[in-house]
Design a binder for these strands. Structure first.
Length: 317
RNA sequence: GCACAGGUGGGUGAGUGGUUAAAGCCAACAGACUGUAAAUCUGUCCCUCUCAGGAGGUACGGAGGUUCGAAUCCUCCCCUGUGCA
């Protein structure tokens, strides 16, 4: 299988499509927000024509009122990968061309959950989280961190006290799994994780120059605003309410602020562009650590880059 | 032209005689990330050395001055905003 990774707006969709056309590929989305139905403009999903041409998976598979998670993503993605392989074997017997799974997206944690697996910890418990959040608000983040230190000092030393969500998750893991397994998070981690088996994996990473990327991000965010992001957001806002999680994501968050009158249109756009740039920076940091990436120094829309990617697929797969 | 307000580090914006290389926020850069991840968090951020504790240099529109000591006070000049002409 091929994995196409890189920061937002680096052209992952275009590269994945080019590879899919060439090798009879099926694209498996790995962008968290693109999984939500009706979130279209702000997520830069592939067009209807592209989706008719090449099979796409894990797009539009979650209700906007629901929540996804890395674990849920990994489960579904592995299921789909299995189906693609099944299909390939059938086609192979009848002498037809192969089916190449192409995982494409920028959500680093989801990709890691798919490829490396997650540790065998419990799923989240909203009630517990609410209680912990309340305590953090009342007594400050240090308070929670002290609780974690008692439960799992090793995890506590790894997680900064100010990083409340991660501290909460660690406490949750310890507390929820204690009655049955009597293990804290660090001990559960040591059990290792179930990595994806049965695939030769080629990671193609898009790495355009920073200035080029940032300019592209600005341009694309402006295009989203011009092409109806605000109207789309308004529709989603009335249909699902302000608490719908994906409404807090890049672009949508700023569109909501505009609709509420907190920002004028120009400032909302500028804020959205900024948020996208900041996000891209974080993705770059994340993917730098990803092992065995074949880096392509340019945008995925560039035909020379696509040719380079295709050549790598031919060599490696 | 007169009156008032103001000019601070990449931006914004505190500071109004000494503990101020100058708060906070933002940007930028670097980093972390094992089920909210398009989330959340950390570090660096004037220059040059460094035995990493520090040492030196330059800096608050410009030029002078007062003072042991000035971003902070005084004088003149330049620029910006607002009001009156």
């Amino acid at each position: 299988m091929v994995v196409v990774l890189g920061p937002t707006a680096s052209g992952k969709t275009a590269l994945a499509l080019a590879i899919a056309r060439r090798f009879g590929g099926e694209i498996v989305n790995c962008d968290s927000v693109a999984m939500y139905r009706e979130f279209d403009i702000g997520t830069a999903k592939p067009s209807a024509a592209e989706r008719a041409e090449i099979p796409h998976h894990l797009l539009d598979c979650v209700d906007p009122g629901a929540d996804v998670s890395a674990g849920e993503y990994a489960r579904q993605a592995r299921l789909i990968l299995g189906e693609i392989i099944l299909r390939e074997n059938l086609l192979h017997e009848s002498g037809q061309r192969r089916r190449l799974p192409i995982v494409s997206g920028g959500t680093g944690l989801y990709l890691r959950a798919l490829l490396d697996g997650l540790f065998p910890g419990p799923q989240r418990s909203e009630e517990l989280r609410d209680r912990l959040r309340g305590r953090a608000e009342k007594n400050g983040p240090e308070h929670l961190h002290r609780i974690l230190r008692r439960l799992d000092s090793s995890a506590a030393s790894r997680i900064h006290a100010n990083d409340v969500p991660k501290v909460i998750r660690a406490i949750e893991v310890c507390l929820v799994s204690r009655p049955t397994s009597r293990q804290n998070m660090t001990e559960l981690w040591q059990q290792g994780r179930e990595s994806l088996q049965g695939f030769r994996i080629l990671r193609l990473g898009l790495n355009p120059e920073r200035e080029v990327l940032y300019a592209r991000i600005n341009q694309r965010a402006a295009k989203m605003f011009n092409e109806g992001l605000i109207a789309e957001t308004e529709k989603l806002l009335t249909k699902y309410g302000a608490q719908a999680r994906p409404l807090a994501s890049l672009g949508y968050k700023q569109a909501v602020q505009f609709l509420r009158g907190e920002l004028d249109r120009e400032s909302a756009l500028a804020a959205a562009q900024q948020a996208h740039r900041n996000y891209a920076k974080r993705q770059i940091t994340w993917f730098r650590r990803e092992p065995d990436v074949h880096w392509l120094a340019g945008l995925g829309d560039d035909s020379a880059i696509q040719a380079e990617g295709i050549a790598a697929v031919e060599r490696e797969i």
